[in-house]
Design a binder for these strands. Structure first.
Lengths: 147, 147
DNA sequence: GCGATATAATTGACAAGTCAATAATTGATT
DNA sequence: AATCAATTATTGACTTGTCAATTATATCGC
């Protein structure tokens, strides 16, 4: 069973998550929150929907993480003038600084993950992960059609 | 950012988790529980500690999942005669049947994940994941030594 | 313009993990 | 043998994620 593929993926992800957690320190952030900050940093203000879609997570999770981020002063949920249904999530100054820090942390994380990998291996690994991901999505679509 | 490696791993894992969830149906199992059943099926009765160590998860998580499994009749936590501190987690008949089913489900899951991969690619992919995992563990050890 | 329908954010309830603390038992040292 | 330390299971509080339901707003058909 230790060779079962899904367990390898499980363990790799959890090892990564563990490292990420070790970076959190006393920032007040949870393990799922930094990615939101970095996204906002790189793409500018956006709706909660956009965040949920991009990261393929439930809007409810986004909503709660943003509530926490807002309470800790990293983010603001402003009204959107053009559409009062969606809101415009923006980084605060503090959030911007934290986002920059996390962009670095993520680079470090990737470099640990890929330590000892040649450039060619990195590309191959990346392509494998993307293909695996695609396989599951394709399966889901198939099942949906078959309904 | 979509190319950041950690996000590839994140998405692959979540796609896998999503498929797993779609297999749960009305079994009464949660997404983390089947792996415990299969382990007990393959290795026989063991302590909670052993499960937690093998899967590298917190004993508290194991304890709660077993409580749920026990309540649903898949598992029993019996006293261990040789050591009253540890207990002996055993599959029930129902648990055994469910474990067999899940062994199949896991094979299916792996085959979906690896759809379109050659035998050589599968081996390479497995080795990449194991190496990545090892890199994080090595890092953790390093940090611990440095303290 | 109005009504049905879809979409955005939110909330509640749950599962799986984390960490910290506790109680009971075991093992080790002197 | 008695104390002190380590280990096992458990519980509480928390975060991230799921799903289902609700509310408010937009949009589309007529």
């Amino acid at each position: 069973m230790q060779d079962a593929f899904h367990m390898l993926l499980y363990h790799a992800f959890h090892a990564q998550r563990g490292f990420l957690r070790s970076c959190l320190g006393r920032s007040g952030l949870g393990a799922g929150q930094p990615k939101l900050l970095v996204y906002l940093y790189l793409h500018g203000p956006c709706s909660q929907r956009e965040l949920a879609s991009y990261f393929e997570i439930d809007p409810a999770a986004v909503c709660r993480m943003l509530a926490s981020l807002e309470q800790n002063g990293f983010v603001e949920r402003a009204e959107n003038e053009t559409c009062r249904r969606t809101d415009r999530v923006c980084l605060t100054e503090q959030g911007l600084a934290e986002a920059k820090t996390w962009q670095e942390n993520y680079l470090t994380m990737d470099s640990i993950l890929l330590r000892g990998f040649s450039e060619q291996e990195r590309e191959q690994f990346a392509s494998f992960l993307a293909r695996a991901c695609g396989n599951f999505h394709a399966k889901k679509e198939d099942d949906a059609c078959g309904t």
